[in-house]
Design a binder for these strands. Structure first.
Lengths: 153, 153
DNA sequence: ATTTTAGTTCTGTAAATTATGAACTAATGA
DNA sequence: TCATTAGTTCATAATTTACAGAACTAAAAT
């Protein structure tokens, strides 16, 4: 596995981005590598060697990504290796998860309004606005996806 | 500052949510407290004492939240204390920042497509879909906000 | 003038996270 | 049957983070 300078730096930039999204450094680099490599499917050893991370870190990263549904693998008969690749079909699911996350936030904010006893209800209007907006977003999301699909048909 | 059990647990739940968004624990608790407390404006000492965090952690948290635009403070003449409160007017800005974040991801993904040389271009279509969807989302967001505003007028 | 207030900054450290390397396992191949 | 491959697991090392506590500062109050 040989990578261009651009590929290497993209792995790092993407890696840092994903670290900020809560992934551990090595995990984020593995995702980056699978994303930018010329070959879409890589083996355990290729990943470990190309990124210079230990076998244990590689094992841990791959299992983490398998469990969270970010990657998958194929095998070929007469070849014991697994070939790992990004599960690129699932960006919709990941997007849905982000939306779920916003839903949870919204439920927390609704509880906040119930629980706190503000003298002046003016303080509640902005929060109500945000809650309302999140509800609206969630409701409109299916339509938005639909329209996007039509727009490119 | 006395809080109900519900308020306390909401602070923790919101705190954990915000930890997952990359905030440090103490910072996340300060946001939570300012969100759920009956009085919308609290002093340094009230925050420190209510949450049982040290003055240094309180100072650090408040400055962090001031710098990132999450809170602000008022003062009253003849009173040296600052009264901190959530900058609730700015959820639009925060939302805009999230969108910026997605924009950055999108720019990375576009570079990925340019840089990697996949034998079979079929591997690029899913990624192109996602890129296209993110572009669409970004473009439609102002309209969506607009429609939401009209819907509640 | 000095004491109090309202914080800030600095140093040390406990705890958590992340990764390494070595030992291990289970399956395959020679 | 023995060696090799393709990983996994475990103990531990290194790094990072998050916070406490004490010393400090600048303005205001007495």
């Amino acid at each position: 596995m040989t990578l261009s300078e651009e590929q290497r730096s993209l792995i790092e930039e993407f890696g840092i981005y994903q670290e900020n999204n809560g992934f551990q450094p090595a995990v984020a680099r593995v995702m980056g590598l699978l994303l930018v490599s010329d070959r879409p499917e890589l083996t355990f050893d290729e990943i470990s060697e190309t990124l210079s991370i230990s076998k244990s870190a590689t094992s841990n990263s791959l299992n983490m990504l398998l469990n969270t549904g970010h990657i998958e693998y194929t095998t070929f008969s007469g070849d014991r290796k697994r070939y790992f690749r990004i599960k690129s079909s699932n960006w919709r699911e990941l997007f849905a998860k982000k939306m779920e996350d916003l839903s949870y936030l919204n439920s927390l904010l609704k509880r906040v309004l119930e629980v706190r006893k503000r003298e002046n209800p003016i303080y509640d209007t902005k929060l109500n606005d945000f809650i309302s907006f999140l509800d609206y977003m969630k409701a409109q999301m299916p339509r938005l996806i639909d329209e996007w699909e039509k727009s490119r048909a």
